[in-house]
Write a protein that binds this DNA or RNA. Structure first.
Lengths: 252, 252
DNA sequence: TGTACATCAGTGAACGCGCGTTCACTGATGTAC
DNA sequence: TGTACATCAGTGAACGCGCGTTCACTGATGTAC
């Protein structure tokens, strides 16, 4: 987290136009993050280093400390950004599929998820794998909030499809953490606990093959992981929705 | 891979009883691996280091090089071991569920998979996540063979359940890598490609929630991830098999 | 409009650390005759 | 059964590396009066 960014609670009228220094500061922070991302793309998330970033930016390692107190602070910032990237992407995918049946929606969201993961394996690993040696995910913070956003996409999806032939099992709200329960009930007052459970299971289903693929575990078996995933998401959609008629079969 | 272990092609009769030195050597290698595993359990897979192992064993760092040419060779050995551990565990789970319906089998295998992953998160991450900074998975080697063993468990499962109401999609063997196709046809001559695809999708399904859980992504939502997983595997079993009657509902 | 002062970005050098790996060696264990 | 030699496990010291972080500082930018 940057030390003193933008002061967003203070309006421009109070302090005059945004200060020149603040603009420069924000630009430098953006540049640092871009350099970190470039390092990730080049050699994996575990090669991110303050010294490397400083080198790439033509600065002294010490200069980074003007913007981040510590390496972990930078990593946390990057992780939060990835979370928001995922959430935004899923939200867009769902919005684009609005009005279509649940099967089409689940396919759209899942496909977007996989496409993003395959295109950005390092970002994916930063969030869904071991982020970086020595770094420990702080339990609270903006990451949790963004993860909730992504989760909301799935809840929306299940909400639209509910009731579904799947998931007839009895459920109780105390199977969930209080914070999660509160968040769900705030957005979806009438949602039964079984639907919330289904949303999480949906997430697992979307995630499984993608995680295997990103970590190279489908390499020796399958020529086109996208197709395998597509099949699975079609089945998933069918079990959620009204049947296969709502989705056009897309040939590879 | 150890430099010159056991010489397994040579029989005891040819060289006399196993040599004392060879026994000592094997014991030391085992001790090295045990120390590496202990390091993993203590501080995560990324804290494994030759120097650390030597320290724990009361040896000079140099001494490790008598047994492994390089750090990556040790890591590869550990990874191969984990692969075999997983494969053996899944085989046992399937064998224990032999004779039961497909739904019960899938539940048994999946539960074993999750139990192992949760009990050994570092081993899990070594294989299904970023193993260790700087280490690159060699494309061939014993790991691939052991992964194939694990895959065979799922193929057996699908084979027993086939044909299944799920997975009506057309499939072709050239969706798979030649090596995989050959391996499948060798063990299951009559298996259609759609069944092989289903086995891989099953793997993804078993894996998804487990990966999320191990990496802490269910922490803020759910009090008992085991139960959520259990539900999902019940559904999975149902879609594979004859219906829910073949499985006893287990209360938490 | 000018001046005194505070803030801030950034430099340059250094710290201590743990790492994988190499060099030159020693002393014990096994082998061949 | 004894001796000469080869093999092997292991020592001890050192190498160069890149890392995160700290110290003491400089010079430019902005602020208050």
């Amino acid at each position: 987290m940057p030390r003193s960014p933008w002061k967003p609670g203070v309006t421009a009228a109070q302090v005059g136009a945004p200060r020149r220094r603040d603009r420069l500061r924000a630009a430098t922070i953006a540049e640092i993050k871009a350099a970190a991302r470039a390092q990730m793309d080049a050699g994996g998330a575990d090669t991110i280093s303050l010294r490397g970033i400083a080198r790439d930016m033509g600065m002294t390692p010490r200069a980074i400390y003007t913007y981040y107190d510590t390496r972990d602070a930078l990593i946390s910032d990057l992780i939060a950004e990835v979370y928001n990237q995922v959430a935004g992407m899923l939200e867009t995918a769902l919005a684009d599929a609005a009005g279509q049946g649940p099967a089409a929606q689940v396919l759209a969201v899942a496909t977007a998820y996989r496409d993003w993961a395959v295109a950005n394996p390092d970002q994916f690993q930063l969030v869904y794998g071991n982020p970086v040696p020595g770094y420990r995910r702080p339990p609270d913070g903006p990451a949790a909030a963004a993860e909730h956003r992504a989760c909301t996409v799935l809840l929306t999806l299940v909400d639209a499809a509910w009731p579904t032939p799947q998931a007839a099992e009895p459920h109780d709200w105390n199977e969930f953490k209080p914070g999660f329960t509160a968040a769900v009930r705030a957005s979806f007052p009438d949602m039964p606990p079984a639907a919330a459970a289904l949303a999480l299971r949906l997430w697992g289903r979307m995630h499984g093959l993608v995680a295997l693929e990103v970590y190279g575990h489908l390499d020796t078996q399958v020529t086109d992981p996208a197709q395998l995933y597509h099949q699975d998401m079609l089945d998933l959609g069918r079990s959620l929705g009204l049947g296969s008629t709502t989705v056009e079969r897309k040939t590879k």
